[in-house]
């Protein structure tokens, strides 16, 4: 069991999410940075559908009530236990009674803490993801708070004696702190409806992640974008990465807790391969877009998926050998 001593800014339980219920108004939710979640689970030998902690900007302090094996991925978060700093992207072993203190992130927005065995709360509608916006999921979809006790799944005894593996992952392909690199954008249903200045600004301007951003979406500060003529739309389905343009002219890029439908003009669609990079932008970070076509976006996504699968296999082999 893990006891939450302090919850951090916003720590939640996340897995791959809750697909298949959009027709009932229920979104997928799940981890905002899915590759980081998968790699955290791989590092501790969990199946990819296990549940982990998603940590936002400032981490929680946790008391471990049994021996555990953990891994931290995603944004680099300050971590300490028993007076020792803990590295990310490698399996770590901590004894029962340890207090794990997770602090701030130098850059990035979300870290993942996987624990061997997974967080073993009861699934709600097929998933252990907390949809914080809808108030759905374990603990009624509210973020963790002090006093919460999180059960852990069954786990084999430690194989070796070392408290730290002799190897770690190179985070670089999986965490991109370089906010100067543009995110790739497909054209959307209403991109052509933007006025000429806005169409140019969409790819030429530098936007900034607004403070009001959350797991529902990233609100962008920057030049106000406008359509060349107002458009009355009825609600249609949206997906993560859809760029909506509300009447105030500040685009919203939808993230994992987006509502299942929306009635704002859709001025672009973020390439899925760049969704984790968007999820790691924090309020105040810069954001630029670069155009991409559908074929290239699909190739990039498939290449990333292949890399992830190879990495999961390689990690499993390292674990088996150690």
């Amino acid at each position: 069991m893990i006891e939450v001593l302090t919850p951090g800014l916003q720590t939640s339980l996340q897995d791959r999410g809750r697909p298949g219920l959009a027709h009932l108004g229920i979104g997928r939710a799940g981890a905002a940075d899915l590759p980081a979640l998968r790699l955290a689970h791989a590092l501790v030998g969990n199946p990819p559908d296990a549940c982990a902690l998603e940590i936002t900007l400032t981490g929680p302090t946790l008391r471990l009530h049994r021996d555990v094996e953990i891994a931290l991925t995603g944004a680099p978060v300050a971590a300490e236990a028993n007076g020792r700093a803990l590295p990310g992207w490698t399996p770590l072993r901590l004894k029962a009674g340890s207090v794990l203190r997770l602090g701030g992130m130098r850059h990035g927005c979300r870290s993942y803490l996987a624990v061997r065995g997974g967080i073993d709360v009861a699934a709600v509608l097929g998933s252990r993801s907390q949809d914080l916006n809808a108030g759905l999921g374990p603990l009624a979809g509210r973020p963790l708070r002090a006093g919460d006790r999180l059960p852990l799944g069954a786990m084999n005894a430690f194989a070796g004696a070392a408290d730290r593996a002799a190897w770690s992952l190179d985070p670089r392909p999986w965490f991109d702190g370089a906010v100067a690199r543009p995110l790739r954008l497909l054209s959307g249903t209403h991109t052509e409806r933007l006025d000429a200045a806005s169409r140019e600004a969409l790819f030429a301007a530098s936007f900034r992640i607004a403070a009001a951003s959350n797991r529902v979406g990233c609100r962008l500060d920057g030049p106000r974008l406008a359509l060349h003529a107002p458009l009355e739309l009825i609600s249609e389905g949206v997906v993560a990465g859809t760029v909506q343009l509300p009447p105030n002219g500040q685009p919203i890029v939808l993230l994992c807790e987006h509502p299942v439908s929306g009635g704002y003009p859709r001025i672009g669609q973020l390439a899925a391969v760049d969704l984790p990079r968007l999820a790691q932008r924090r309020p105040g970070d810069a954001l630029r877009f670069a155009p991409v076509d559908a074929g290239e976006a699909a190739r990039l996504l498939e290449a990333r998926e292949q890399r992830l699968l190879r990495m999961e296999t390689a990690i499993a082999r390292r674990r088996a050998a150690s």
Binding site: L21, H23, G25, I26, A134, P259, V260, S261
Partner: peptide, 8 residues
């Protein structure tokens, strides 16, 4: 349709 919130 359903939307806005789960079950709406």
């Amino acid at each position: 349709m359903l939307g806005f919130a789960p079950g709406f």
